[in-house]
């Protein structure tokens, strides 16, 4: 018997990439199992609290007797949670309260609007995928291996489904055609190149020659960017000796690497770093415009490897 040969797979786009009609690929970061678990636990807490509140109201109105409290509480929890997930995701376009708190969101696999039926089915499946295994785990009995073993295998199998696909989809997501992403948070920080750092008393212009700027790549540039950005939010207590030493070390390293002749005095260090950042960025961006991307300081070695 011949096995049907698999077609060689075409180069699949990354799982978090989406190509809108504009043709510029955008990236929606896939939410991992941990953050989704946190959102789920938050939702469970919310529904449990709601059912306890209902139970107290019922108790105050004398509608239940203490013997039946267990059964009624279980039923209330069930009656509240099933519509809670469906309705909240419909109302907030794919976010329950827990998901809002964790800043994650359900999106459709094709990047279009979420259909109502998709939200209904992914939350109905939650019963079979999360609540039933969770209840089973609580009631499993080691003395009955004939029932316990298959149940355990089934529970583990269900839990593993999200780990075996790239978009971390559980069964309900697969049926609904949805997956969960981190909701992108646009925060525009100031441009480091025109940041106003503390000015030294003596203003001095630093100038760099082009061969001095041929040592570093984008990675080092962006690390320097983060360092400079941290200066704006620097607390007064960060002016200690270790801090000054670190800064001195960085300046000294750069100076040695690029063969910068002049000495840098202590109050000029930040100014020097910023001037170097600006010159380096302008230089690298220009190289990039000419088609030469330098991802890090090893760009020379990479080049020679490719050509040889």
């Amino acid at each position: 018997m011949r096995w049907p040969r698999r077609k060689p797979k075409a180069e699949a786009p990354p799982a978090d990439q989406l190509l809108p009609p504009e043709g510029v690929p955008i990236y929606l970061r896939i939410a991992g199992v941990g953050v989704r678990l946190a959102a789920q636990i938050t939702d469970i807490l919310i529904t449990v609290i709601a059912s306890i509140a209902f139970l107290i109201v019922l108790g105050a109105l004398d509608l239940t007797s203490p013997e039946t409290w267990g059964a009624i509480a279980y039923m209330l929890f069930f009656i509240i949670r099933v519509p809670y997930y469906v309705l909240s995701e419909i109302a907030w376009n794919g976010q329950t309260l827990g998901k809002r708190l964790m800043k994650i969101k359900v999106v459709s696999y094709d990047g279009r609007s979420l259909k109502v039926h998709a939200l209904v089915v992914r939350n109905l499946m939650k019963e079979a995928e999360i609540f039933l295994p969770a209840t089973l785990v609580l009631v499993l009995d080691a003395s009955e291996p004939a029932f316990t073993l298959p149940a355990l295998i089934w529970i583990i199998g269900t839990c593993l489904v999200p780990l075996f696909n790239k978009r971390r989809r559980r069964l309900g997501d697969l049926i609904a055609g949805t997956y969960v992403i981190h909701l992108p948070q646009p925060v525009l920080l100031q441009d480091v190149s025109n940041l106003s750092l503390r000015r030294p008393k003596t203003k001095q212009d630093f100038s760099f020659l082009s061969h001095q700027l041929d040592h570093y790549g984008a990675f080092e540039l962006q690390t320097l960017e983060e360092l400079l950005r941290a200066q704006t939010s620097r607390m007064p207590y960060q002016t200690g000796k270790t801090y000054a030493d670190t800064l001195a070390q960085i300046v000294e390293n750069i100076r040695r690497k690029i063969n910068y002749p002049d000495n840098i005095t202590e109050d000029q260090r930040l100014q020097f770093l910023q001037a170097f950042y600006n010159a380096q960025r302008a230089h690298l961006e220009q190289r990039q415009l000419f088609g030469e991307r330098r991802s890090d300081k090893f760009f020379d070695e990479n080049d020679s490897k490719e050509t040889s």
């Binding site: 525009l188 441009d191 480091v192 962006q222 960017e225 950005r229 690298l284 990039q288 415009l289």
Partner: peptide
């Protein structure tokens, strides 16, 4: 054209 990490992320 840009190597400004903050701008790209935004």
């Amino acid at each position: 054209i840009s190597l400004d990490k903050a701008l790209l992320a935004y």
